[in-house]
Design a binder for these strands. Sequence first.
DNA 1: GCAAGGTC
Length: 628
Amino acid sequence: MAVRVLNVAEKPSVAREVSRILSHGQSTSRPGRSRYNPVHEFRYTINGTPCDMYVTSVAGHLMEIQFDEAYRSWNAHPPRALFQAPIHKQVPKDKKQIEGTLQREARNCQWLVLWLDCDREGENICFEVMETCCRANPRLSVFRARFSALIAEDIHRAINRLGAPNKLDADAVDVRQELDLRIGSAFTRFQTMFLEKKFEWPQTNKKLILSYGPCQFPTLGFIVERAWEIKSHVPEEFWSIQVQYTHPNSTNGPVTFTWKRGRLFDHTVALRLYEMCLEQPEARVISVEGRNTQRAPPVPLSTIELCKRASRWLRLGSAQVMQLAEELYQEGYISYPRTETDQFEDGYDLQKMIREQMNHPEWGEYCNRLLNNSLFKWPTPGRNNDQAHPPIHPTKPLGQNLNWSRQKASVYELVTRHFLACCSKPALGIETKVAITISEEHFQVRGLMVKERNYLDVYRYENWGGARALPVFEEGASFMPDSIMLVDGRTQPPPPLSESDLLAKMEEHGIGTDATMAQHIQKQLERGYAVKTESSQSLMPTELGEALVTAYNEMGMEGLWRPTIRSIMEQEVRAVAMGNKAKGIVLASQVDQFENLFSAFLQHRGVFEEVISQFFVRKSTAPGNPRR
DNA sequence: GCAAGGTC
């Protein structure tokens, strides 16, 4: 008799894909208790054992940690108690139906095979699923299927080489969860309750929540830090010499040579050098260099790159991009949108996906060229691979009469053009550099002639250089410039932090993950800590955001908003995952450390209040807080 | 009324 096997994936799309691959498209489906998570059925032979396969899914974590009931109320215990308060894991309300399906199926099965994503969080979810299923059926044999991509080869290999889930990875996630909950809740409760009645806060329709989080605050920190740089910028005047010349054979106007010295902040010196140039204005060409150059197409698209590029070129916020990408994914138009991977597996059928785009009115012709001549090139791999998802790419051509918003269509277009671009040859050009001297001063100009546009033809967001072709200069020749000018300028403050710069900083310091970065930025807006500027894609702190970070600083608690705090936590968590440190020891020491930080915070509450009072008006009616 | 991480 066949062994009955319950298979559980992290999301419905993986359950569907695993079933399709293992059953060669022969699986049938029936609804689960949750309407998004059906159960797929088919027969399969695992290492010679005939099996009845039941494949279903969860939707991310099945459980979350919570403080015990006695600590839920904000007033029942002082916030400091949250560092030691008892916690437990539970299935939240909105996951009860999924839990129901798992338990119902588990009772009917003998084996449990875990198909969760092969990352740390996935490993943790394995244990949540195990706990749930084994409670319903304690006699289950449990196995872990490990796969690096949703391709037939990997999936077949995984089912025939089943292993055990990795407890260390799961422990590491437990540590991270517990620290985040304790730290976030304690600081959030304290600063909200401490400040809410003391000051007049801007009116909003929501209750004031001054949340603190180990990702939220470093994110806010980046925004405030840039605002400080802008505020403290002192413009400096500088001078530079520019030379213009219209070559007799030129077809596109005068050429501007720039000064090799760049800019000088000493007016007297700049003026003297300028006057020397004017006295002997004849220019001599000292070198003409030409070399072949190329501009590489982008590497395959990861989530963070999608957000950065959409922000820059489509002027969409990353939260909105992810929302639209999610819709496109649900409707089958693009692959899974939360991926760190920027390389395609060998054997991925890129040609097929290009062929599917051949009838598109705008880029269909380009696809023809890709398939029919030597324009195609296997994408240059990026450096990242999350071992769970391919780079983002189109999975279905556009249909007729889609009622899509302009924004949604533009996200699909970006994903598709990016995909086609990364499958293309680089653009080729010839760069020329002409160097001249006037008096003793050196000047130069660079020109570029694009020989083959290649990927640039489809990737219309990018231009190459903005440089243009130069007329032909002869080495050793002399000419009389049209003009020599002493131009002056002032140093500018840096621009407000753009969303793509912010994402880059978060990525650099490990704040958040591909799936959460957009949410952390969104949270800044939601809490009233930051706003988007009119041009819409830059972030500036509000009074509130700046006040909080300033206050932390004045209290000597810089560490609370700098990114380092998260990096250290991440290091410790990694040590647990590697088996180098015990879960209990890391937890105890980290909790202890943050509890001490919290005590210091309480001791400096006077400074906290004082700094906030420099930004906000005290509530005159507040009892116990009379105005001086 | 709180975090961050999955995901619908």
